[in-house]
Amino acid sequence: MTDLTDKVAIVTGASRGIGRAITLLLAMQGAKVVAVARTAEELEELNAKTQGLAIPADVADEDDAAHIVAETLSHFGRLDILVCNAGVGSFNLLEHFDAAEWDRIFDVNVKGTFLLCKAVVPHFKAQGSGHIVGITSDVSKRTFEHGTAYGASKFAQDALLSSLRKEVRPHGVKVSTIYPGLVDTYFNDSRPGSLDAEKTHLKPSDVAQAVRYVLEAPAHVVVDELMLHPMTQEW
């Protein structure tokens, strides 16, 4: 298995929920984690636990994305892992969506993934190694009522990562995609910890363990896709 000790990892959407759980778990495994989110106060509190690097940033801003990678390389001198976890969602009938909300969902879920990948791929290719992990959703594989915007963004994010996997594999770079079902987080203004969620939702730590699994797989093993099922909490 791949040892994560001293590996340098960027995790986006790190201040809460899945991103926070991934950040804490990777730090526990000895990785040096760069936590990225828009909320500086929450990032600093998290960074106090991990002793990594906190970078307040908007993943959908091209200058911010380039800054995240440049600051990571300047601080640690290397970069091994990118976890594209930042995501937003909103659910409504299509005719009730306005263009600004549609753009916000695509900016974070798709453009944010694109910009961070664009910033790290040249570095990963040059060093002949690196691992990108995308946290998409099980709705990358299915559709549902009221899910036009979110579902379309997750289909697009999944296609982006799948295509990128084929581009970078010859250069020794891995791309893995994780598809969680319902997760007990603050997503879409939810409040974690409800009784129903405990029965029907994954925990953020379940997704974090899936990320650890794909990252620790031996170098010759490629895990392209990993689906997590909330009802059984199995993957």
Rank of each mutant, 00 (worst) to 15 (best):
L43A: 03
S163K: 07
L115M: 07
A86I: 00
E71A: 15
A70E: 11
L24W: 00
R169S: 14
M28V: 08
E41P: 01
K49H: 09
A99R: 07
V69D: 02
A159L: 11
A119K: 10
A208L: 07
S90E: 13
L4N: 10
L115G: 04
T148N: 13
W102P: 00
A21G: 12
G52V: 04
H123R: 14
L53H: 01
H123D: 10
P56M: 07
A40F: 02
S194T: 15
N85T: 04
K154C: 06
V83N: 11
G193I: 08
T136W: 00
I10R: 05
G30M: 12
E45W: 08
A99W: 08
H146K: 14
H75M: 10
V211W: 00
L93N: 12
S190H: 13
A99I: 09
A159E: 06
L43H: 00
N109M: 01
M231S: 15
A86N: 02
G130I: 03
R104H: 12
G17D: 02
S137G: 06
A57T: 03
G151D: 03
D58W: 01
H131Y: 06
A86Y: 04
S90C: 10
Y213T: 15
G87W: 08
I132H: 01
G147I: 07
S162D: 13
A57E: 04
E101V: 12
A14D: 10
V139Q: 02
F124P: 02
G181R: 00
T39Q: 13
R169K: 14
V88Y: 09
V139N: 03
A70D: 10
S153T: 09
P192G: 07
A86K: 00
V33G: 02
S162A: 14
K111M: 08
G89D: 00
L53V: 00
F144A: 15
D63Q: 15
K203F: 14
L79C: 07
T23S: 04
G52Q: 01
A149K: 03
P56Q: 08
E41I: 05
D224W: 01
P56F: 03
I178K: 01
G89L: 01
L228G: 02
P56K: 09
Q157H: 12
V59D: 00
T143A: 14
V120N: 03
L160I: 10
V108F: 11
L228D: 01
D206E: 06
V133R: 08
H171N: 13
D6R: 12
R212I: 05
V69F: 06
V175R: 07
M1L: 13
Y179V: 06
I178C: 05
L79W: 04
L94W: 08
A159H: 10
K141L: 14
D64M: 02
A149P: 00
T136S: 15
A65Q: 09
L53S: 00
L82F: 01
L93F: 12
V11R: 03
V175M: 09
L164Y: 08
S140Y: 02
V69Y: 00
T12D: 12
N188T: 10
W102V: 14
A66P: 10
L115D: 06
V59R: 02
E145D: 09
S74T: 15
L73G: 08
